[in-house]
């Protein structure tokens, strides 16, 4: 536990003593903000149109569901942005130690591999939690001007956290394979993208295979979280994905 904490602290400090943390968090929020704005203004326009139509036909205006129409797409966007940013967060965790030789210190100290991996995993995870925490601001605005349901938002964030930790675990894995941060980031990115894409492929191939494939797809499992459905099946999926990444 002491070793885990030591490594967690060192990695966290290292994130914040270099520009990495600020750049990643900042750009993530900027990007999220832009898309948030687009989605919300789109949503507001749609509401206005629906209102107008309702007035024309002298009907009760149809109630628009802000959860379904705005928050869900926002969550999906965030999961996509995490796909771009998290490989950048994880790429240096082991690659850099290999490149500079500090790995020899780590591997000849009385620290188990497991402690080191978990320390690094937790540091990247903490950074991701900060990234997500930043997006709360956007959600708070929705609460100020509308009345969304809280439940789906919470499950959405849980889903985001799990999907992000899955990215991180594989990012960590690819980082152990190479001295080059770029290679680590790119292979993580491609790997995760393939797992995303499996969901689309599954639509094309035969139904049984398609079903099987979509079970492996990272994003299919996320869909329910974003809808507000909390299913242990999905949680188990992400956890096993995370552990697979960490054990490799």
């Amino acid at each position: 536990m002491k070793n885990f904490l030591a490594i967690f602290q060192r990695e966290t400090k290292s994130y914040f003593s270099s520009p990495i943390a600020y750049v990643v968090i900042g750009l993530f929020l900027v990007l999220a903000g832009i898309f948030y704005y687009l989605i919300i203004s789109n949503f507001v326009q749609m509401c206005m149109r629906v209102d107008m139509m309702a007035q024309q036909y002298r009907q009760m205006p149809q109630k628009m569901n802000v959860n379904l129409m705005a928050i869900r797409p926002i969550m999906h966007n965030l999961s996509l942005f995490a796909l771009f940013f998290l490989p950048l967060v994880t790429m240096r965790l082991y690659s850099d130690e290999k490149r500079t030789g500090t790995i020899e210190l780590l591997m000849t100290s009385p620290v188990s591999n497991w402690q080191a991996i978990m320390g690094k995993f937790a540091a990247a995870g903490a950074l991701f939690v900060l990234m997500l925490a930043g997006t709360f601001i956007y959600i708070i605005f929705i609460f100020l001007y509308g009345n969304p349901e809280l439940g789906p938002i919470l499950t959405g964030y849980l889903g985001l956290l799990l999907i992000g930790l899955s990215y991180i675990s594989f990012g960590l894995f690819f980082s152990t394979l190479t001295e080059s941060q770029i290679i680590a980031a790119v292979s993580t990115f491609v790997f995760i993208l393939v797992f995303w894409a499996i969901g689309w492929i599954s639509g094309i191939v035969s139904p049984t295979l398609g079903n099987l494939l979509s079970n492996f797809s990272l994003i299919e499992h996320f869909d329910d979280f974003a809808k507000g459905v909390l299913d242990t099946k999905h949680i188990v999926y992400y956890l096993s994905f995370i552990f697979m990444g960490l054990f490799l």
Binding site: T100, G101, L105
Partner: peptide, 12 residues
């Protein structure tokens, strides 16, 4: 152990 390249975290 002092490896051939000192194992230093340059940013610390």
């Amino acid at each position: 152990y002092l490896p051939e390249n000192p194992p230093l975290y340059q940013d610390m």
